[in-house]
């Protein structure tokens, strides 16, 4: 399975370097909460179709940065574009072009699976016919057709997470933000979840994902590792491993995080 992954990664990186189509551009992003500097001059770019891993210890500032890119929070300063739109002036356009899955579980437990899908399709302004199509396709993909009229509350966590992910993709966004999407999920489901992510990336969607799991970092095309509000390293997993002379991403991460002064 791992070999599969390396192939995809190489392929993706190749495509990226050929076109270098930037979909997220961040220059000198600063976010302060009072005197606390959550994001200290972040600068990075994310390319179309890549899986961009956003790593860091708790409190390193990754969720803050992601919330800013999604329009849930506003930056203190810096130049930012998402999907080609300006974060300050074109927030509404950005919203139409991004999907978001938060760390918190975000489906309505007292609604059925089908109702949840229809609701989210509705707020993105999909037509009745589109909604019906999406609903059928999604249920089929998940193999949840017989369960369509069951309440979400009766669905195991792993399924809910997969459903949340597909719902974040409902409106065909260019970019999907995933905030620790696999927290608390068993390894098999996590693997399936990552298959979904590859599939979406293969369709040309850009995936911006934060994670705690270092094995997942290996699945990304490029990773950035945040320490104390700054980006301490940013490259492909292979280059980083060589650079830090480590066998796996865990080693890379530990070397970088050891210098951290901030923890939860």
């Amino acid at each position: 399975m791992k070999e599969d992954k390396t192939d995809t990664s190489a392929l993706n990186t190749a495509t990226v370097t050929e076109h270098l189509q930037t979909v997220i551009s961040v220059k000198n992003l600063v976010k302060k909460f009072g005197h606390f500097v959550a994001n200290d001059h972040l600068t990075f770019e994310v390319y179309k179709g890549e899986i961009f891993g956003f790593l860091g210890a708790n409190g390193a500032g990754k969720t803050t940065a992601m919330r800013i890119l999604c329009g849930l929070s506003s930056p203190t300063s810096g130049e930012l574009t998402v999907g080609g739109y300006d974060v300050y002036k074109q927030a509404e356009l950005i919203k139409r072009n991004i999907g978001y899955m938060s760390q918190k579980f975000s489906l309505y437990e007292d609604l059925t699976i089908a109702e949840n899908i229809r609701f989210y399709a509705g707020i993105y302004g999909l037509s009745r016919q589109q909604r019906k199509e999406k609903e059928d396709r999604m249920l089929k993909k998940l193999g949840l057709e017989p369960e369509r009229d069951k309440l979400i509350a009766s669905l195991p966590l792993g399924w809910r997470q997969k459903l949340s992910f597909l719902i974040a993709l409902l409106h065909d966004p260019q970019i999907v933000f995933l905030d620790e999407p696999t927290g608390g999920v068993d390894p098999i489901t996590r693997r399936q979840f990552w298959d979904f992510i590859y599939e979406a990336a293969a369709e040309g969607k850009t995936i911006f994902v934060t994670t705690h799991y270092m094995d997942e970092a290996e699945y990304c095309d490029r990773v950035s590792i945040m320490v104390d509000g700054r980006i301490a390293a940013l490259d492909t997993p292979d280059v980083l491993k060589k650079q830090f002379n480590s066998e796996d991403m865990n080693g890379v991460f530990l070397q970088l995080a050891r210098g951290a002064t901030r923890t939860d």
Partner: peptide
Amino acid sequence: ELGTMEILLVSPL
């Protein structure tokens, strides 16, 4: 509390 508000706020609503 549930976190669904974030999803709503990220949507075009």
